[in-house]
C-alpha cells in the first residue's frame, strides 16, 4: 500500500505536498510523546493533533504521512513547516476510529 493509494481509497484531502511512498503500517494517537515512542518508520499517523510538533515528530519518526481527522485543519504555519520538511499532511472529516477501521479493512496493520 502506498500513500497515494490510501489518499484515493479514503478520499483524503492533501493539504501539503504529497510525497508518495510505501506505507509500512498505521498508528493512531494524539499524544505526540506516544507517537515518538511507538510509531514506526513508514507508518501513517491517524490523529486529531494539529500542533506544529506533529510535523516535527513525523520527520523524527519518518512517518509516511499524517492523517488529521474529524474535520480539523492545521494552521497555515503548520502546513508551511510540512512542505519545508517534506511531510505529507492529509485531512478528512471522518473520525480517527473510522479512518483506522477503513485502513484496517484495506489490509493496513500496526507495525
Amino acid at each position: 500500500m502506498t500513500v497515494n493509494e490510501i489518499v484515493s481509497a479514503l478520499e483524503l484531502t492533501v493539504v501539503s505536498e504529497l510525497q508518495d511512498s510505501a506505507v509500512t503500517g498505521a498508528y493512531a494517537a494524539d499524544l505526540l510523546s506516544d507517537v515518538v515512542g511507538n510509531a514506526q518508520p513508514g507508518n501513517v499517523l491517524i490523529t486529531v493533533q494539529v500542533h506544529r510538533n506533529v510535523v516535527a515528530v513525523a520527520g523524527l519518526v519518518g512517518l509516511a504521512a499524517v492523517i488529521i481527522t474529524h474535520g480539523r485543519v492545521p494552521d497555515s504555519d503548520v502546513l508551511t513547516a510540512a512542505r519545508d520538511n517534506n511531510v505529507t499532511v492529509l485531512t478528512t472529516a471522518e473520525s480517527s476510529f473510522t479512518v483506522a477501521g477503513r485502513l484496517y479493512a484495506l489490509g493496513v496493520r500496526s507495525a
Binding site: 505526540l32 510523546s33 515518538v36 500542533h51 506544529r52 510538533n53 515528530v57
Partner: peptide, 16 residues
Amino acid sequence: RPINSLFSQLGMWPAQ
C-alpha cells in the same frame, strides 16, 4: 509528568 504536560502532549520542545 506523563499526563497534561508539554512533553506528553507535544513529544518534544516546540519551536516559537
